[in-house]
């Protein structure tokens, strides 16, 4: 059930350069990869902003966000006990992989927010084998949190950041090792992945599934305004309702540039 509910800030702290960890007092639910709209208690910005659920506790919900523009700037100045309004959970979320499948999860920058619950969920319930790849342009963040839920992490940074690998994360993946790749991050990362995987099967000569979580500006977040569309199989689909997770081989990437 989708709710629209107030939540008070428990914690809103920087965890990296322009990256904040926001924790709210909230009893809610969400599947991995789903998101909530967060509305600030001010007239501007007028619209709520979408954020993936990073973690869900019994009485709390957590988000990770990068400061980008008006909304996230304001959000970063908010303190404990201030109130936000949440709408959600929204969107389809990541499908759990079939058991025994070998899976790579790839998070580019703040895109890792959408993979935390999924990693934990797969490791605790599902016996597929999952490797996590996290790529950062600058200093890596939130690794401690991920290291609690998986030991199979590859981390890279485009800047020199010992002890991490240096370069784009896509340089360190061998797609042929996997049955499926789930990715969330900036558009150039999707492009790199597609060109690496395209037309190639994995080492068992099976096609590799590539699922991506896409971002678009939103108004309703519910599927009614048709503002947040991407072209999928020749038709405009709503990121908030039909996505945000889409089969990358069905997305019209020439449109989504």
């Amino acid at each position: 059930m989708i709710v629209y509910k107030k939540a008070s800030i428990l914690e809103n702290t920087p965890v990296g350069e322009n990256i904040f960890h926001l924790s709210l007092e909230f009893s809610g639910w969400a599947l991995p990869g789903q998101f909530y709209l967060l509305k600030l208690p001010f007239q501007e910005p007028l619209l709520a902003r979408p954020f993936s659920v990073f973690e869900l506790g019994e009485r709390s919900i957590e988000f990770l966000y990068q400061v980008k523009g008006v909304g996230t700037n304001l959000l970063s100045t908010m303190v404990k006990r201030e109130i936000l309004t949440l709408t959600g959970p929204l969107g389809n979320g990541w499908p759990l992989p079939e058991p025994e499948k070998k899976l790579a999860l790839i998070g580019g920058g703040i895109g890792l927010a959408s993979l935390n619950m999924l990693t934990r969920e797969i490791n605790s319930k599902n016996n597929s084998k999952v490797d996590l790849y996290l790529g950062f342009s600058k200093k890596p963040f939130m690794l401690e949190s991920f290291s609690k839920i998986t030991h199979r992490i590859v981390v890279s940074s485009e800047e020199k950041n010992e002890p991490f690998l240096q370069g784009k994360i896509t340089e360190f993946i061998n797609p042929a090792d996997y049955d499926a790749i789930y990715a969330c991050g900036p558009r150039p990362m999707f492009k790199a992945l597609r060109s690496m995987i395209k037309n190639e099967g994995n080492k068992y000569n099976k096609p590799i599934d590539l699922l991506v979580s896409l971002e678009e500006k939103m108004a309703c977040g519910l599927g009614s305004c048709w503002g947040c569309v991407v072209k999928v199989k020749g038709e405009y689909k709503r990121v908030c309702h039909d996505g945000p997770v889409f089969n990358a081989w069905e997305v019209d990437w020439d449109e989504y540039s």
């Binding site: 501007e44 007028l46 619209l47 678009e216 305004c225 048709w226 569309v229 405009y236 449109e255």
Partner: peptide, 23 residues
């Protein structure tokens, strides 16, 4: 109707500009 190629939404001061295009 297919509607307009994105972007379709722009938040501006005090309002929203949409160009959905009757999809």
């Amino acid at each position: 109707v297919e509607g307009n190629k994105p972007p379709r939404l722009f938040e501006v001061k005090g309002g929203l500009i949409n160009r959905i295009g009757l999809q």
